[in-house]
């Protein structure tokens, strides 16, 4: 590591360094893929070849074509003042910086209700397991509601996470009305003085309007117990998703009033370029990114670290 690198890591807090390190490990493949970028920037000018390589890099990270064009324009505009690499880094960070807004459980709201939604297999239940642990570490008393009454053994899966973290899980028989399960769980959480209630829901594709209506119903019914609930609606998006991520975010935002996004499975070879597309097209904060199987691998979204990991070509 160069002196500059050493200086940089000293300057950052220990916590942040370990985070960026973890992220670095998680996105190791990304780095390998993006390796070409460092070489491009060895040159001082941005010519057509450079642009084409940048474009390919962004597109193969699942950045959408319109967003890609915006980024390229940004780089061209900046390249006059700064060197290409800085221009690239700054453009990317500027684009996703507005998405940085962490989940805060408001003091005084008890229980603070977090509704978790998303398409099938995006990682909702696993995210809830990790989030529970995280909130417990902050000293919160958490309760879980098994609102996925459709998928086989979904409530057992959530119950296992409940056991692991030693938190109560409210569940009913398969096929029960999810709105009723979550409403009951709210009352139970209130009675037991829980700080946070996290409600799981069944996975649903955003174009299945009947199932999407069910989410609207959950909101309506929950609103009868507490007008402001759910206080947070998290959309869990699979990090390997392509252009469909935008459509997911749009429809879930419209119908379920999503207030935050969690992008999972970024520890694989997927690059999560959809975050740039989401930043360009929709302004929903990214609350967490999932970079691994363990509880600590649900990380706060850090735009600088995210971009640096993409650019790091070591």
């Amino acid at each position: 590591m160069s002196w500059f690198g050493l200086f940089k890591s000293k300057k950052t807090e220990t916590e942040k360094a370990s985070l960026s390190q973890r992220l670095g490990e998680g996105l190791a493949k990304t780095r390998a893929r993006m390796a070409g970028i460092g070489n491009i920037f060895k040159r001082d000018v941005i010519d057509e070849d450079t642009i084409e390589t940048l474009e390919d890099t962004l597109l193969s990270a699942d950045v959408s074509i319109p967003t890609c064009n915006v980024i390229i324009d940004g780089i061209k505009a900046r390249a006059k003042q700064s060197d290409p690499q800085t221009a690239f880094r700054d453009t990317l960070i500027d684009l996703i910086q507005p998405l940085k807004s962490d989940l805060t459980v408001t003091e005084g709201i008890k229980p603070y209700v977090i509704l978790v939604v998303g398409v099938n297999g995006s990682g909702k239940t696993t995210t809830i397991g990790k989030l529970t642990k995280k909130l417990q570490q902050e000293g919160k008393r958490v309760m879980l509601a098994a609102g996925d009454t459709f998928r086989a053994a979904a409530s057992e899966q959530l119950a296992t996470w409940g056991e692991r973290n030693n938190v109560p899980v409210i569940r009913q028989a398969p096929g029960a009305d999810p709105a009723a399960v979550i409403f009951d769980a709210y009352q139970s959480a209130q009675a037991r003085g829980s700080d946070v209630l996290i409600a799981d829901t069944a996975g649903r594709l955003q174009n299945q309007s009947g199932l999407m209506d069910e989410l609207a119903k959950i909101r309506r019914v929950l609103g009868k117990a507490e007008a402001d609930a759910p206080h947070e609606t998290l959309l869990v998006i699979d990090g390997t998703t392509g252009q469909n991520a935008l459509q997911q975010a749009k429809l879930f935002k419209d119908i379920a009033h999503v207030t935050g996004v969690v992008v999972t499975k970024l520890d694989g070879s997927a690059r999560g370029g959809m975050i740039f597309t989401l930043a360009h097209e929709l302004a929903i904060p990214v609350r967490f990114i999932g970079v691994g199987e363990s509880v600590d691998d649900l990380q706060l979204f850090d735009p600088d670290a995210f971009v640096d990991t993409l650019l790091d070509d070591n």
Binding site: D62, T240, G242, A270
Partner: peptide
């Protein structure tokens, strides 16, 4: 997953 993006290539290859 039919919604998979660019990563489908890497995963399928591996």
């Amino acid at each position: 997953d039919a919604m998979t993006g660019q990563d489908a290539a890497n995963t399928a290859k591996a």
